[in-house]
Design a protein around this nucleic acid. Structure first.
Length: 238
DNA sequence: GCGACAG
DNA sequence: ATCTTGTCGC
């Protein structure tokens, strides 16, 4: 029996994820990450692809860099791109990463002094079927610390939208409150974070690369004026 | 068979 | 991801 093109693509992608995963670093590697107020952190980045109506082939790849802690715009780059890979849940990175890497390389070439010290990614990191989501993929390929922030819950490894999950959300009282997303294995894969006082719907934060979950959650909260962290929200707004 | 499925 | 304006509440 021969596999369909889709099946063999997914097989290929699965082994590529496993290969890259060996290079993943799930701990703090930078001095600023260990400081309570993140002193030494001056630039935070955000990446995203946005689409229009009935078109899932053409998209706008965006990279912004903001100052920290003021969150003022230091750099912005938007580029129309043509996607080739299909969207398959669990393999988002293969669709989006090439264009995000391209944007980061362009920045490194043109204004290396503006390279971000950490990148917020619209999607999951470790909180993923095979613990290697978009934020991990981009982190390993770029070598930059990355944080995954998803706006919707991915039901994975025993984490479900159960009534218990809903009541845990209801118990998040103020911005900064969070609860762990624990796999059946017992490993904490991420945290649901109430990112601001005003929004009752949490965001789902997980380690991308070269940062601890604790630092990732604290940093995400400190970059939120609204529900979505500013480095990612900037793009959606513009 | 049915539901779930980051973006 | 996107389709979609106003509206209600603080």
């Amino acid at each position: 029996m021969s596999a369909s093109p889709e099946e063999s693509l997914v097989q290929q992608w699965t082994s590529e994820q496993a290969r890259l995963r060996q290079q993943l670093v799930e701990e703090d590697t930078e001095d600023w990450q260990k400081s309570p107020g993140f002193s030494g952190l001056e630039r935070v980045g955000g990446v995203d692809l946005s689409f229009i109506k009935g078109d899932d082939v053409n998209a706008c790849a965006q990279l912004v860099v903001l100052s920290y802690p003021d969150l003022e715009l230091l750099y912005e780059n938007s580029q129309m791109v043509t996607l080739t890979a299909p969207y398959v849940a669990g393999f988002l990175a293969f669709r989006e990463t090439p264009f995000l890497i391209e944007a980061l390389q362009q920045l490194e070439r043109d204004k290396p002094e503006l390279l971000p010290q950490v990148v917020f990614v619209d999607g999951n990191g470790i909180f993923h079927y095979r613990e290697f989501g978009l934020a991990c993929h981009l982190g390993v390929l770029s070598g930059l610390p990355c944080v995954g922030v998803a706006k919707n819950l991915l039901q994975v490894q025993g984490v479900y939208k159960s009534e218990e999950h809903q009541s845990q959300i209801a118990a998040l009282q103020k911005g900064g409150d969070s609860f762990p997303l624990t796999a059946t294995s017992g490993k904490v894969l991420g945290k649901a974070l109430r990112s601001s006082d005003k929004s009752s719907k949490p965001v789902y934060v997980s380690v991308g690369h070269k940062i601890s979950l604790d630092a990732a959650v604290r940093l995400t909260h400190s970059c939120c004026r609204y529900r979505v962290p500013e480095p990612i929200r900037q793009e959606m707004v513009q």
